[in-house]
Amino acid sequence: MTPAPTPEAAASGAPTPPPSKKPAPTIDSKGLQRYKMLATWIIFIGVLVVCFVGVDADFMALFSDGARQNMGRILGEMMRPDWSYASHIWKPMVETVQIAIAGTIIGAVLAVPVALLCAVNIMPKKIVSIPARMVLNLVRTVPDLLFAAIFVAVFGIGAFAGMLALVFFSFGLVAKLTYEAIEAIDPGPLEAMTASGANKIQLIVFGVIPQALPYFFSYVLYTFEVNVRAAAVLGFVGAGGIGLHLDQQLNSLRYDRASTIIVITLVIVLLIDYASTYLRRKLL
């Protein structure tokens, strides 16, 4: 029999007395299960009700005449994109991709040493790996757009703030994925090298990097995909890229032009996604 007893199993299974005396404990565990279920449901529904009240969720508003007309008008205009506007958006589109590339590469390069510090099989000293991980987790709690809003306030409006936001974001993501990959590598070669007297640097260069490199590149590509999508909306907080133009068109109620931007952005994002997924599959 498989181990890992649940509380219920432990309550009924351990001593294995004859079956005839069995019913009592199982009835108990059934009752307990039922109360747990009930309590979970009550808490769950209670939280939902409080939330719906708290947010003034008015689903009728979603289907009210005003909302229908607004949505209908917007969607109607979006159905007819203004293709003549497309020629204006190639430059910001290129800028968007540039922001994503620069942010990804810088973030990924910065992530390497931190990932090495976080991996316990390379850095067995807890005094180093635990604070390193804490910093990483801290960085990862802040969403990319929030970084962008902050950097815009610090460095002013422009693509630089956006790139910096993506640097931080990529750093967190790549470092976490990479240190997990490093911890999962085959310890055999490392042991062999330690046995033959290699020092730490030699260990990393000849033992760790060859094993972890494909994963690292794969994660960088994945981060790049995420960053392209992020870069497309960074402009909403003033951090450059195509989002700035989209924001302007939405504010001036040019939904036909906004739609052009959205469609082209989606196509480019999808193309990059597919290309990157293809590359990743070849890497691993």
């Binding site: 290129v94 800028e95 540039q98 590339i101 620069a102 590469i105 610090v154 002013g156 422009g158 450059g240």
Partner: peptide
């Protein structure tokens, strides 16, 4: 690719602050 991606990014205005 990296150098190209940096080429059109505006870095001025940082020192002012």
């Amino acid at each position: 690719l990296f150098i190209w991606s940096l080429s059109s990014l505006q870095f001025d205005g940082i020192q002012e602050y």
